[in-house]
Design a binder for these strands. Sequence first.
DNA 1: ACGCGTCTTGACGCGATCTTGACGCGCCGC
DNA 2: GCGGCGCGTCAAGATCGCGTCAAGACGCGT
Lengths: 226, 226
Amino acid sequence: MTVVLAVDDDAAILRTLGIAMRARGYEVETVADGRSALQSLAERVPDVVLLDLGLPDLDGTEVLRRIRETSQVPVVVLSARHESDDKVEALDLGADDYVTKPFGMEELLARVRAALRRAAPSRAPVVTVGDLVLDVEDRRATRAGEPVHLTPTEWKIVEVLARAEGRLVRQTTLLTEVWGPSYERETHYLRVYLAQLRRKLEDDPAHPRMLITDPGLGYRLLSDLS
Amino acid sequence: MTVVLAVDDDAAILRTLGIAMRARGYEVETVADGRSALQSLAERVPDVVLLDLGLPDLDGTEVLRRIRETSQVPVVVLSARHESDDKVEALDLGADDYVTKPFGMEELLARVRAALRRAAPSRAPVVTVGDLVLDVEDRRATRAGEPVHLTPTEWKIVEVLARAEGRLVRQTTLLTEVWGPSYERETHYLRVYLAQLRRKLEDDPAHPRMLITDPGLGYRLLSDLS
DNA sequence: ACGCGTCTTGACGCGATCTTGACGCGCCGC
DNA sequence: GCGGCGCGTCAAGATCGCGTCAAGACGCGT
C-alpha cells in the first residue's frame, strides 16, 4: 500500500485530496500543521508528502528543510504563491515538484505518480522454492545458503520452472522458452539438462524430490515441502 | 561537466536556453527536431533533457516514449499546451516535470536542478580489497600505499562497477554508460579493458579476486565489505 | 609537425558450455 | 515374456565466449 502524507491547513483541500487519492488506492494521512507533519514523519515515513507552504505554525519551507535533514522522501509542494522566487526556493530546498493552487486534481495525481515512480527502487525479484533461492536480477542461485553455479542454459530452465510455481511445464513450452520455437522437438536437450540440474540441485540425483518428471508431458519444480 | 540536451523547434528559445544554461556552467547541446534528439541520445546520454512537445517531425510524446524505451535520463517537458490532459499524458509517459510556456527562466533552472539532484548517482563508496584502495570520488587508486594510474576509460568502468556494490553489471549497461548507447555490442572493449584493469589492480591477474566475470552476462566488482 | 599516452581493432589460444550420438533401464501394452 | 517408447546417463566433438597480446589509429599538448 502506498502511503501519502498530506499537509495543509485548509480542511476543504485536505478532504478533497483525501477523497481523490483514496479513490486511487492510496492510503492517506492528513495533518493540518507543520509540527504534526514532522511528528507523523517521525513515526512513519510515507511514500510521498504533499506539503502546503502556508501553514499556521511553522513556515512550509522550514518544514521542508527539517524533512530534508533526515529523509529523501519525495515532497510535492502545494502553494498559493505563484512567484518564481518561491518556487525556486522550495525546489532548491529539496522539493521534488511545486504545484500552484488552484491545481487540477488530475495533474497533481500525475505529478505524484511521477514522484513515486522516480523514487521506486526497482526491487530485485527473488524466487524461492524450498531452500533454493533464485535472485533473478543478480543471476545468482543459492541452495541452503550455498551458492550454486548454473550455466546460462541451466539458469533459463530453472527460471521457467520456478515461475510456474510447482505447476507442470510442458516440454514444448520449456524448449520454446529456452532454445526457441524451432527447437520444439529436441526433447533430448531436456533430458541432458535436467540430469545436470539434478546433479547440482538434488541431494540424491537418482531420486529427485524437486525436479520432477511427468513422463510424456514435461517437468515441474516442487519445493521439497509440498 | 553536466550535459543538457535541449530540444525545441523555436530557434529563439533554443538560443535563450543555451545562453542561460551555459552561464550556469552547463554544457548545452541544442537540436531542433525529434529525430536529431534521438540520434544525439544514441551517441551520448546527457544528464538531463529539455523536450518541447511541439516538434516539426515527430510528436514530442513519441520522442519521450522512445527515450523511455532505453533510458532513465531525466526529461523536463516544455510545452505551450496548458491542458491538464497533456500534462498527465507526458508525465505518465515518464516525463520528470512539465513546464508550460512561457516559463520563467529561474523556475526552469530550479526544476532542472531538482531533476539533476534526484538523478544524482549515489556516491560510490571507497572500495578496498586487501591492500588496494579505490577512491572513486577522488579518482585515486593506491596499492599498498603506492599510487596506481588509471586512464579515463578505466576509471569510468571502475566507477560503474563500484556503484553496483558487488551486484552484477550487464555488458550492455557497462558499454552504454562508458562508451554510449551505440557501443552496446562492442563486448570486445570490455575484454580488453577488464584485462588491463586486472593487470593494474589484481595481485594475480589470471585469477581475479575483485573483477569477476559472469560469462555471457557481465562483470561485478567485489570488495572486502561484501 | 612531433611524441606521448590512450584508444581501437584484429588474431589467436583456451576453457567452459553446448550439441550430438550411443546405450541401458523401466514401464506399459500385448 | 517381449518389444516399443520414453527417460536417464555418459562422453566426445563442436562451438562459444573470454583473456591475451600487439599493431596501428587517434588525440592532445608542446
